[in-house]
């Protein structure tokens, strides 16, 4: 049988052999296509298998709604990750608030304002920003951003007796790095959304006497809203999941996410503690992974709904 499938090149194979090789090929392709499904299912399964035991040992409320994080303490360790969750939520929100306006304005520049030649210069810059490895953002964050933050911190908290100095590794530093990292995503999605807006809408608005800026902000952007929102949701996913770039600039202790506090994100807690964690501590780190995973899945579902909604509209 095998010999026959090889001889397919000669074109003289029997009907049965041909049907066999056709079927074989089809099944191979089917298997390849199912790999993605298997991967997603096993990732889900393993995240739940590894992430849930700590809930039974420590207690759901003790983990999710307590704020004290002393996982390595010999006596009475506590595993409250509320501050870590809040940090991820606050950090992502702030990064979005900073990165999204910048991204949309840049997209407007590329599509509506810039002469073609200028746009041809800015567009590659956006693409390259997306391609730079996250560790390099982290490296520049430590070398450039944190010293500035430290100076600022020293000025602001000069007379404070309660403030713990962080050396500049704080929430703001992490937020700035995250905002820069989501920028390309927001720009690219907004550009394609704005390009998809019907030219007639623009012409009509201009003909009615609106200025170009009025047209952009009152007609074009609202019309491109759903595409831009998709970009923002993608950006949220990216910011929530980023680990290495912010692991060193966000500080090293768990605190309430205030601008100048040293904080731990869901991701950075895993990165910085996994290497030495053992026993229950390690299990709780997997629980943190599970919390992050659930966040990401929710975002993915929102995204799918949005894309489906968009397809229905058009």
């Amino acid at each position: 049988m095998k010999k026959n499938t090889v001889s397919i090149k000669s074109g003289k194979q029997s009907k049965a052999a041909r049907a066999f090789s056709e079927n074989l090929a089809k099944n191979c392709f089917l298997f390849a296509a199912v790999v993605a499904v298997l991967a997603v299912l096993s990732i889900m399964l393993y995240m739940f298998l590894k992430g849930t035991p700590a809930f039974f040992k420590v207690g759901l409320n003790e983990i999710l709604f307590e704020t004290e994080w002393r996982p390595a303490a010999k006596e009475n360790p506590s595993f409250g990750i509320l501050y870590i969750i809040l940090t991820s939520v606050a950090g992502t929100t702030l990064a979005i608030m900073l990165g999204v306006p910048l991204g949309i304005l840049t997209a407007v520049f590329l599509t509506e304002v810039a002469p073609k030649k200028l746009a041809a210069l800015v567009q590659p810059a956006v693409e390259l920003l997306a391609a730079i490895p996250s560790v390099i953002y982290g490296l520049l964050g430590i070398i450039i951003l944190t010293p500035w933050m430290y100076k600022l911190e020293k000025i602001i908290f000069e007379d404070s007796e309660t403030h713990q100095f962080t050396g500049g590794a704080n929430l703001i530093s992490a937020v700035i790095v995250l905002a820069i990292m989501i920028l390309p995503t927001v720009v690219n999605m907004s550009v394609s959304a704005i390009r998809a807006v019907d030219d007639k809408l623009k012409s009509a608005s201009l003909a009615l006497g609106a200025t170009k800026i009025q047209t952009i902000f009152k007609v074009v952007l609202p019309a491109a809203k759903s595409g831009i929102m998709t970009g923002i949701v993608l950006g949220i996913g990216r910011a929530l999941g980023e680990a290495m770039a912010i692991s060193l600039v966000s500080g090293s202790s768990v605190n309430l996410p205030l601008p100048f506090n040293s904080v731990r994100f869901l991701t950075t807690a895993i990165v910085s503690e996994m290497s030495y964690a053992s026993g229950l501590h390690r299990q709780v780190l997997f629980t943190i992974g599970l919390v992050l995973f659930v966040f990401i899945m929710v975002i993915n579902l929102v995204l799918t709904k949005m894309i489906q909604g968009k397809e229905k509209n058009t």
Binding site: A36, V37, I43, Y46, M47, K50, I270, L292
Partner: peptide
């Protein structure tokens, strides 16, 4: 639909989750 949905989810999962999964699986 399922395969395309799975592919989309796969591209949205953060790398640190892949790291955890790879480590244990």
């Amino acid at each position: 639909t399922i395969i395309e949905f799975a592919t989309q989810i796969l591209s949205g999962i953060p790398s640190i989750i892949f790291g955890l999964f790879g480590m244990i699986f």
